[in-house]
Amino acid sequence: MNKVSASAAGAVAGISDGASLAVGGFGLSGVPEILVRALYEEGAAQLIVVTNNCGVDGRGLGVLLAAGRIARVTGSYVGENKEFARQYMAGELEVELVPQGTLAERLRAGGAGIPAFYTPAGVGTQVANGGLPWRYAPDGSVAVASPAKETRDFDGRPHVLEHGITTDFALVRAWRGDSHGNLVFRKAAANFNPLAAMAGRTTIAEVEQLVGPGELNPDEIHLPGIFVQRVVALTPEEAADKQIEKRTVRA
């Protein structure tokens, strides 16, 4: 039952070239920074990533992106990452853009063993009809476009079929966790972390506070340890290193 790994490097050692990853975080909130950097040092390439957004330049998944280690991204927001936009427009990166709520439910469905579901989100747009550019050619033309999806009416309203997502691995960050893998997330840093953790066949969690079995109140646990295979305890310095994407203060 003890799922604690001695180091982040050891925890990500089994992630090889071409692996698929579900990664938690939103902007710079709740991003598994230490695991991402350990994966960068490990050297895996051609990664297939499912995440809300791909970090920012120099932080989070932006580190792997800048090194050319990511081949494909399924996400809902390009954000402030200029290198992400450059690679996509230059045809160096394949990107599947998904409505944010749909992405969240696809991850949850995959983790819950639900192969597919219908949703009204995207009906009447390229999300359902196909034609969204997944990859551009060097000359700016569309090299790969999204296919059309099945649609069906429920109570007179059209819905589009979306498939659940599962990945080889998941990287997430939690506020507290125990050695059995039970996790507690704090406020907005929860974001996509519980959903990404559910979708991964092997889920690796970095935790700011590691406690012993039984120390977490069962009513406070957000994600049960059955979804988590490896836990990495952060140092106080690593846990405190939290940058703000856009700092806004009063005059």
Rank of each mutant, 00 (worst) to 15 (best):
N2P: 09
K3C: 12
A9C: 06
A9Q: 13
S16A: 15
D17W: 03
S20Y: 00
S20C: 09
L21E: 00
G24Q: 03
G27P: 00
G27N: 04
L28G: 01
S29Y: 04
G30A: 06
I34K: 07
V36T: 11
A38I: 05
A44D: 02
A45V: 15
N52K: 09
L61R: 02
L61E: 10
G62P: 02
A66C: 08
R69T: 08
T74G: 00
G75V: 06
Y77V: 12
V78N: 08
E80N: 12
K82V: 09
F84E: 01
Y88L: 10
V95G: 03
E96D: 14
L97N: 10
Q100C: 10
L103I: 10
A104Q: 08
A112G: 08
A116G: 12
T119P: 04
G122F: 06
L132Q: 15
Y136N: 07
Y136I: 09
Y136T: 07
P138G: 15
S141W: 05
V142K: 03
A143R: 05
P147C: 10
T151K: 07
R152W: 07
D155L: 14
E162D: 11
A170I: 04
A170F: 03
A174M: 07
R176S: 15
S179M: 07
H180R: 13
F185W: 01
A189R: 04
N191C: 13
N193M: 03
A196P: 02
M198T: 03
R201F: 08
T203M: 09
E206D: 12
V207W: 01
V207I: 08
E208P: 01
E208K: 11
L210E: 11
G212C: 06
G214T: 13
E215R: 13
D219E: 12
E220D: 15
E220L: 13
V228D: 05
V228A: 06
Q229L: 06
R230Q: 14
R230I: 08
E237P: 01
E237I: 07
E238H: 05
A239I: 05
D241T: 12
I244E: 12
T248H: 15
V249K: 12
